[in-house]
């Protein structure tokens, strides 16, 4: 029953996707929008194939992926670390959280000029930009997850004689994992967005730079091929994270 339903829903989503592509193709062929701005799926696909054959698109995808993963990793380490400290200490929550809540709504793209002043139009600047933007969801979800652990487990930890670091590592963080995964997921989306923004600002290569340069010279198929690959990256990275989540949280009652 459940498996059949799963299959039906999967087929339905594929059907919707096929219809969307069909609509796109029809709009492009009917000339509703000038071909200079809107290439059809066929020309976009041709641009992807050409990019893969020449290796340019592969290289650009690699660059963007690397930045996204590195920046996201940096944000994870910082965000989960700081979130754990804040979640454990009621004092830190009262003292630090208002400040963090004040910084958090700042759009990362508005912070970019500041990062450029310090780091120039460089690789490091892109990574700092990504880390800054992706940090918040992880920090806040970790702090929340660690702080909202049942008090009973803290007592169990004391009764067993676990050290503070052992409590954090073996009880507080694993217990906060369902919350942390929410932050990791949000952070991943932000990381991909900021990787592209950073590449557009710095022109250091990657899909962001590809799209920007293609737009400036009206090569619409190249723009669209970049956008399609970005969409696929988002889809695939989310799927991988979902698999990791399903495995790591398999203990949860269904």
């Amino acid at each position: 029953m459940s498996a059949r339903r799963h299959l039906a829903w999967g087929l339905a989503s594929l059907l919707v996707l096929a219809m969307a592509i069909g609509l796109w193709s029809w709009i492009a062929r009917a000339g509703l929008v000038s071909a200079v701005f809107l290439p059809g799926p066929e020309r976009t696909w041709a641009a992807i194939v050409k990019g893969l054959q020449s290796g340019v698109l592969v290289q650009q995808t690699g660059q963007t992926l690397r930045r996204m993963v590195l920046g996201w990793g940096l944000a994870s380490v910082l965000g989960i670390g700081a979130g754990a400290v804040i979640g454990l200490s009621a004092r830190a929550r009262v003292w630090v959280l208002p400040l963090l809540e004040g910084i958090r709504p700042l759009p990362a793209s508005a912070v970019a000029p500041v990062a450029i002043v310090f780091l120039g139009l460089s690789e490091q600047m892109i990574l700092v930009l990504i880390a800054f933007g992706a940090l918040w969801p992880m920090l806040l979800t970790t702090a929340h997850g660690v702080a909202s652990r049942p008090a009973r487990l803290a007592e169990v930890s004391r009764c067993l004689g676990l050290s503070r670091t052992a409590y954090l590592r073996k009880i507080a963080l694993p217990g906060a994992l369902p919350d942390i995964f929410g932050g990791l997921r949000l952070g991943l989306t932000v990381a991909l967005i900021l990787a592209v923004v950073g590449e557009m600002i710095t022109a250091q290569g990657g899909l962001g730079t590809r799209i920007l340069l293609a737009a400036r010279s009206f090569r619409a198929p190249d723009i669209f091929s970049g956008v399609v690959v970005l969409g696929l990256i988002g889809l695939a990275s989310n799927a991988i994270l979902s698999l990791a989540e399903a495995w790591l949280l398999r203990w949860r009652p269904r």
């Binding site: 487990l153 073996k170 217990g175 203990w251």
Partner: peptide, 22 residues
């Protein structure tokens, strides 16, 4: 002076006292 490893406690609310991820 505080909890001692030599003294073990079985709590009533076993569901909260176990680590569900282990």
């Amino acid at each position: 002076r505080g909890p001692a490893p030599d003294i073990a406690v079985v709590f009533q609310d076993y569901a909260n006292a176990l680590l569900p991820w282990r």
